[in-house]
Simulated scan of single mutants.
Amino acid sequence: MNGAHHPSPPVTQAVLLAGGQGSRLRPYTDDRPKPMVEIPGTGIPIIGHQLNWLAEEGVTDAVVSCGHLAEVLQEWLSGADLPLRVSTVVESEPLGRGGGLKYAAASLPRPDEPWYATNGDIWTRFRLRDMAAFHHERAATATLALARPRIPWGAVETNEFGHVLDFIESPPSPYLINAGVYVFSPEFTRLLPERGDHERTTFPRLARERRLAGFPIPQGAYWRAIDTAKDLTEAAKELGQKEK
């Protein structure tokens, strides 16, 4: 496999998609974009934690794609003590996830190098460098992190006669899902649509061509999408347990 015997080049740039409305997180998002919502007890917004994580993983430059209430995010970024260089782009009209990614990628400082991307509402910690090496070894054009979320309901286990055997609280899903964290090769940028959703266009095409890889987040690594107020509460609780 080409590339397998060469060390993977370090990935030092990233795009953060932070333009979502966050309507399911109201009232928290009435006066701020979703990535600016603070995890209770930390005093830092979601995007602050993401930028710290990216810096720990070797990223020196990040482009934040803003939309909804962009000025709130820009104001926080301009006053925060950040561990890496951050610039922002604002979509003057909604371009969709793929279009937004392409628009932000145009501001990356090194267009001929690979880059990370992450959705602005993801709270996670795992070794991005391992994911970049996985991407490189497979000579992939794009690699997505895969998570196995817990099902939010209790599951009921039955036998073939219909007798209930057990109740399982929030079991892990049998399916892996797109975790909203990516590694992209330089050529990926031109494959993105000018507007629209790359997950319906670019990703299926790359999958058919076997140029899309999936990196399972290591077992035990923390991952959560912050979609609702309940997610915020759960994240705060999980963080408290981790610190004990």
Score class of each variant (00 low, 15 high):
residue 31 D to C: 13
residue 231 D to W: 03
residue 142 A to G: 05
residue 105 A to C: 11
residue 115 W to A: 13
residue 112 D to G: 15
residue 7 P to W: 01
residue 23 S to T: 14
residue 183 V to E: 00
residue 79 G to P: 02
residue 132 A to I: 02
residue 179 A to F: 05
residue 208 R to M: 14
residue 61 D to R: 01
residue 144 L to Y: 14
residue 28 Y to P: 05
residue 56 E to P: 02
residue 213 A to L: 01
residue 44 I to D: 10
residue 9 P to H: 00
residue 228 T to L: 02
residue 187 E to L: 06
residue 36 M to W: 00
residue 166 D to H: 12
residue 232 L to D: 10
residue 141 T to Y: 00
residue 126 F to E: 07
residue 10 P to Q: 06
residue 49 H to Q: 14
residue 107 S to W: 06
residue 97 R to D: 11
residue 148 R to C: 13
residue 168 I to P: 00
residue 74 Q to S: 01
residue 94 P to M: 05
residue 236 A to V: 02
residue 74 Q to E: 15
residue 31 D to M: 10
residue 50 Q to D: 10
residue 144 L to S: 11
residue 209 E to G: 05
residue 166 D to V: 01
residue 92 S to Q: 13
residue 243 E to V: 06
residue 128 L to S: 06
residue 105 A to L: 06
residue 60 T to W: 07
residue 205 R to V: 12
residue 23 S to D: 14
residue 43 G to S: 00
residue 85 R to S: 15
residue 92 S to G: 10
residue 7 P to S: 04
residue 171 P to V: 11
residue 33 P to A: 08
residue 114 P to T: 00
residue 196 G to P: 06
residue 239 L to M: 09
residue 90 V to I: 12
residue 11 V to D: 03
residue 147 A to C: 13
residue 177 I to C: 12
residue 24 R to V: 00
residue 237 K to M: 14
residue 151 I to K: 09
residue 217 I to A: 07
residue 114 P to A: 07
residue 3 G to P: 05
residue 165 L to W: 01
residue 143 T to R: 06
residue 5 H to M: 15
residue 191 L to T: 04
residue 29 T to M: 09
residue 181 V to M: 11
residue 211 R to Y: 04
residue 180 G to S: 05
residue 215 F to S: 06
residue 128 L to T: 06
residue 17 L to Q: 07
residue 19 G to L: 02
residue 52 N to I: 08
residue 240 G to S: 11
residue 93 E to G: 04
residue 62 A to C: 09
residue 214 G to I: 01
residue 101 L to M: 11
residue 169 E to N: 12
residue 6 H to I: 14
residue 219 Q to M: 10
residue 150 R to M: 04
residue 139 A to D: 13
residue 228 T to R: 10
residue 181 V to P: 02
residue 205 R to T: 15
residue 215 F to G: 03
residue 203 F to T: 11
residue 93 E to N: 04
residue 179 A to C: 08
residue 189 T to C: 11
residue 17 L to F: 03
residue 66 C to K: 01
residue 84 L to Y: 08
residue 112 D to T: 12
residue 47 I to F: 04
residue 133 A to C: 07
residue 228 T to I: 00
residue 108 L to Q: 06
residue 72 V to T: 12
residue 18 A to E: 03
residue 148 R to N: 10
residue 211 R to I: 02
residue 27 P to K: 05
residue 106 A to F: 03
residue 37 V to W: 07
residue 98 G to V: 05
residue 178 N to A: 09
residue 113 E to H: 12
residue 60 T to S: 13
residue 49 H to A: 11
residue 196 G to R: 06
